[in-house]
Simulated scan of single mutants.
Amino acid sequence: MQVFVISLAQREDRRRHIRQHLAERGVAFDFADAVDGRALADADRARLYDPALARQRGERRTLTPGELGCSLSHLALYRRMLEQDLPAICVLEDDAELSPDFAEVLAALAPALKADATPRVVLLNRRAKRYSAWGAAALAAGRRRCRAVEAQGTDGYVLNRAAAQSLLQTLSPVWTVADCWDWLLARHTLRIDCVVPYVVSCRDDLVSDIDADRRDRGKLAPGPLARLSDFLYSRFVYRLLIRPLYRIGKQR
């Protein structure tokens, strides 16, 4: 399975890190130049980003320039995948930290993913937080492929051609962040699995280029009824019914 690393061309420090790290893990890869959302002209931003569609689909914030660039970068890689007729690819970001058995797990995922006509994404990262143990498939090194229940992050995942087509159709033009896995899960847009335990984490000393933008945009505080609803669901419905019924576990 071909591995791509999304990275800004001008960030040679980050490229140097990931180049050395993947060499240590014995993983061959190609860079996919990221889109710098901060460098986009206003006309390009208006053409590529649809805030009206975002509001229609329940997004309560506008994307920051960094988030827009991130989403455009992942969509561009999906198009490249289809143009090159690749059956499945692995996508990493340039602050990824891989487990020693990463290549072994990737090799175990590849055959089924390439042969699957169902749109499927498999998240490799630690932010694939909750999963269902029903129907888990054994991989390498004691790891399993499980169905994701709650997930974020695009720092490491694999997908097949059908998933790339589905994501391009659903997320173009850009209206939300690249890691909208929970939104996709809720609407059964495609099958999203995860590797348990995860095989991709992030280096804490490499600060994301979009984190500062996300901190600055603020959050909308939920109202009292929303807080009460969340409390009742998490304390009673989820703990007593949902979690045991679906055998939900949590990444450690």
Rank of each mutant, 00 (worst) to 15 (best):
V158H: 03
A138C: 06
Y131C: 01
G156T: 04
A128W: 01
R144F: 12
V149K: 05
R126M: 01
R126D: 00
R144V: 08
L139Q: 14
Y131V: 01
A136H: 13
R127E: 05
A148H: 15
A133C: 09
D155T: 02
K129T: 05
A163R: 07
R147Y: 08
R127P: 00
L123S: 00
E150P: 11
V149N: 07
A138H: 09
V158S: 02
R127S: 06
R120H: 09
A133H: 10
L139Y: 10
R130W: 09
N160R: 14
A128N: 07
A140I: 10
K129S: 10
R147W: 10
T154V: 09
K129L: 09
R120F: 03
T154Y: 02
N160I: 14
L159C: 03
L123V: 08
G153E: 10
R120Y: 04
Q152M: 02
V122S: 02
A148T: 15
L124F: 01
R147F: 07
A162R: 03
K129G: 06
Y131W: 05
A141N: 11
R147L: 10
R147N: 09
R147P: 12
N160W: 14
V121Q: 10
S132E: 08
G135H: 04
D155H: 02
V149A: 06
A151P: 10
A162I: 01
C146E: 12
A128G: 13
A140P: 07
A163E: 07
V158W: 00
A163W: 04
R120Q: 07
A128E: 07
N160A: 15
A133G: 09
A148G: 14
A148C: 15
E150H: 13
G142D: 15
R161T: 11
R143T: 13
R130V: 05
A136M: 14
A141K: 09
A140F: 07
D155W: 00
W134M: 08
L139H: 12
G142T: 14
N160M: 14
T154M: 02
A162F: 00
R147Q: 11
R147A: 11
R126F: 04
L123E: 02
A136N: 11
L139N: 12
R130C: 13
A163I: 05
V121C: 09
G156A: 01
V149R: 03
R161G: 07
G153T: 11
D155F: 04
G153Q: 10
A133V: 02
R144C: 10
N160D: 13
A138N: 08
G156F: 01
N125K: 03
T154Q: 00
A148V: 14
A148W: 13
C146M: 15
K129M: 08
R127G: 03
T154L: 01
L159W: 06
Y157E: 06
V149M: 07
A140Y: 08
A162N: 00
T154W: 00
A141P: 08
V158F: 03
R161V: 09
K129A: 06
R147K: 12
R143I: 13
V149D: 06
Y131H: 02
R144E: 14
T154K: 02
A163N: 07
R161S: 12
R130G: 10
G135P: 10
G142I: 12
A162T: 01
W134D: 13
A136D: 13
L139E: 12
G142M: 15
S132V: 06
N125C: 04
V149I: 13
R127K: 11
R130F: 08
A137F: 08
A162V: 02
